[in-house]
Design a protein around this nucleic acid. Structure first.
Lengths: 209, 209
DNA sequence: GCTATATTGGATTTACCACTCCAAATCTCG
DNA sequence: CGAGATTTGGAGTGGTAAATCCAATATAGC
């Protein structure tokens, strides 16, 4: 059984635009109020579509939520585009850290990570949600890992350092930091968590010889 | 305006027991299915109480959820009782780490941290929830911090290390690790995150002189 | 232009779920 | 034991939100 992508279903450009509006509105509302806190009626109003449109493009609310997961995955990864894949120096890592903190400040520390909050709310509800979110985090982790691997390969990181494991740990620090930052309404936890992890990575660098 | 605690409301021991059954059942169901995924009817059945009993002891579902937050806070902190407050050596920290990993394995990595998942689901919904959860994490953090402060005070940690900030970072690593562990259904992320943070702390220890 | 298909409107249905209500049973304490 | 309070049973209610339905309009491709 294969899942058809939006493009495979003979949607016209106009239809795809409508579908896009729905997903976008749903993503925003769900990030603000959670999945359970967002009604299809609110999505309809925010996207300015009718009930039949919503169900024309999505089988049911669960299908819409899956589309939102995909949308947020691209949004989160996309927002870090200029960083992910190039985190191969302490300078790049620190700049990325500053970027993440700046984003949170811009959001007044509300809402947390769209993927993190989605995960906690729905990962246990529908098995496919967990799979989707796992893939999302794996993509994110890949972007971190490639930089650390490059550092390792060129000898900047000590041979006994494990760049893959460090990438996982760094992503965890980001997620945990974001959670506490959301609860505290203060960026300090995010800063403390990521800084500590970056200091750790720096301590695993070979001294310049 | 003061909120009455359960004890202040003239509940008899029998009543308190009933109330406790309700909270316990609600906590378990909510951890499994989330707040929105748990109906009052399911709680009633699980606790073997009638509808009127539920609303006799709780004003509404929100009040029940607040009670569940308090219950889970005590449960999570309580489960770590033998560790928190005594994390003042690398040995103690590593033992605590093993304990956390063991717990997750026992749960087959499902469900995540009760406080973490609650936070993501409801922190933005009702302001008081965020306050309650903030307090919960602060208590947890206190338990970690006191150990690191002790290490710092007795000179085991370098003078320029910041034990308070390290405690925040360590709690974040635990939370982020738990999130990824839940999504991956594998304890590796928790291990990687906490190990990295503990290695970092160890690197800040004075060499024995 | 004509036909099939895609898109849209919006009223309606169906189901569920939080919460109420009132009466009955049980307990407390003088 | 008796009066007042607490606890319990369970049917019922009101509102809400997901999903359906049918008809109308727009669009694509021949």
């Amino acid at each position: 059984m294969t899942t058809l992508t939006a493009e495979e279903r003979n949607f016209t450009p106009k239809g795809l635009a409508t579908r896009g509006r729905i997903v976008e509105a749903a993503a925003r509302l769900i990030h603000e109020r959670g999945v359970a806190g967002t009604t299809t009626e609110e999505v309809r109003d925010a996207a300015d579509v009718s009930s039949s449109q919503l169900y024309h493009y999505f089988k049911d609310k669960l299908a819409l939520v899956r589309a939102v997961i995909a949308y947020q995955t691209d949004a989160v990864i996309g927002a870090q585009d200029e960083f992910l894949g190039h985190l191969d120096s302490m300078q790049a890592l620190r700049r990325w850290r500053d970027f993440l903190v700046r984003i949170q400040r811009g959001l007044r520390c509300a809402g947390g990570c769209p993927l993190g909050t989605l995960s906690s709310e729905i990962a246990e509800i529908v098995p496919e949600f967990r799979i989707d979110l796992n893939r999302a985090f794996t993509r994110w982790e890949d972007g971190i890992r490639s930089g650390l691997r490059a550092m390792h390969a060129r000898g900047a990181l000590r041979k006994d350092a494990d760049p893959d494991r460090l990438a996982t740990a760094l992503l965890a620090a980001v997620q945990g930091g974001l959670l506490l930052t959301q609860i505290r309404r203060n960026t300090k936890p995010l800063e403390a968590a990521v800084d500590a992890m970056l200091d750790h990575i720096e301590s695993l660098m070979k001294k310049r010889d």
